[in-house]
């Protein structure tokens, strides 16, 4: 029996509430947990579930996403047969289809027609999880479902398992049915057997700066990261060849997650530090998320802030947000002493 799965990632979503982090990048490429981007979690889950063919539908500012994924080699998806496929949407300026994936799929219907995988997983790029999709398929088959919607505590995770031929049919009849995406289908009136699969593992949904901050901080709890980072289901990401992180004489570090390639001589508490960050002597970082290649000068005080990539904070600068509204510093900016 053909039990092979096709992976479909809808990366067309964008949220205005995340503007400060998505002005230069697709939501799928937003950095998370020190060394990953949001896409890594769904992509690794698919790969670890034995999925060999993944189609990615990006929209909006996808340069950084393509740069991150390259040929798919880091996810073991640079293959002669199948592998990773990019289908950037041709409908960039068409209004009213922002949430309608079927239009994007329709533009690339050949991919679905040519695929031999009998079933497809349709997933989004803003959910952080580490899931094996095979049990979802097993249950789907056992229950004789047409569509299985993956949920947690009864809430939809906006991820679906469907027979590829049915998906093609839904795409092709979208004008008659009025369905623009899978969400419409499961809410629709068509006579389809609609099942739910309860996923009990780690879940974070990122749809605003606040949720990005809260969900990132949640990861500092060992019982949480232990659920996301599972030994036999590794999360793959782009290799950077950074050396191990170096702690200097006056470093003091408590309750933190730190990626490679950092040089740290300051104090870090309750924070996430990404790859290649420099933290100067006497600097204090608290309750913050510091993204890749940021440089923080000596004696800075940074509390409750999100520093996007390549931010430079000049020595002695004091910056404070609140736990409700973290301060967000945009990519590549330089911050001096006068800003507080």
């Amino acid at each position: 029996m053909n039990k092979k799965l096709l992976g479909v990632i809808d990366a067309t979503t964008n949220y205005d509430h995340l503007m400060e982090l998505t002005a230069h990048r697709s939501l799928a490429a937003v950095p998370f947990a020190g060394r990953y981007r949001l896409i890594d979690f769904v992509l690794s889950s698919m790969v670890n579930s034995g999925i060999k063919s993944v189609a990615l539908f990006p929209k909006y500012q996808y340069r950084s996403l393509l740069d991150h994924l390259e040929s798919g080699k880091n996810w073991n998806l640079s293959r002669k047969k199948d592998g990773l496929f990019f289908f950037p949407t041709p409908h960039l300026d068409v209004p009213g289809i922002e949430n309608g994936s079927f239009t994007h799929f329709a533009a690339n219907i050949d991919y679905f027609n040519k695929s031999t995988q009998k079933y497809a997983i349709i997933a989004n790029c803003f959910t952080i999880f580490n899931m094996d999709f095979q049990p979802v398929l097993d249950r789907h088959l056992a229950m004789g479902c047409d569509i299985t919607e993956i949920c947690q505590n009864g809430h939809s995770l906006d991820m679906y398992l469907i027979k590829t031929s049915l998906l093609i049919e839904l795409i092709e009849t979208r004008e008659q049915t009025g369905y623009t995406c899978m969400k419409d289908v499961v809410k629709g009136k068509q006579p389809l057997t609609h099942c739910h699969y309860e996923y009990t593992g780690y879940i974070s949904t990122i749809d605003s700066i606040e949720s990005f901050y809260v969900e990132s901080m949640k990861l500092l709890n060992p019982s949480e990261w232990n659920k996301l980072f599972i030994d036999h289901q590794p999360i793959y990401t782009k290799v950077k060849d950074e050396p191990p992180t170096r702690y200097l004489k006056s470093s003091s570090i408590k309750h933190a997650m730190v990626a490679n390639g950092c040089i740290i001589d300051g104090t870090i508490e309750n924070s996430i530090i990404s790859r290649g960050v420099r933290i100067g002597k006497g600097a204090v970082i608290k309750n913050s998320i510091i993204m890749q290649k940021c440089t923080i000068g000596d004696n800075c005080i940074i509390d409750s802030a999100i520093l996007d990539k390549d931010v430079k904070i000049e020595k002695g600068t004091v910056m404070k947000g609140t736990s409700q509204i973290p301060l967000v510093i945009r990519k590549g900016t330089v911050q001096g002493e006068l800003i507080s």
Binding site: W225, F229, I235, K254, M257
Partner: peptide, 9 residues
């Protein structure tokens, strides 16, 4: 392919 390092309180 490992997660970031975790340093406890």
């Amino acid at each position: 392919n490992q997660r970031p390092q975790y340093i406890s309180s």
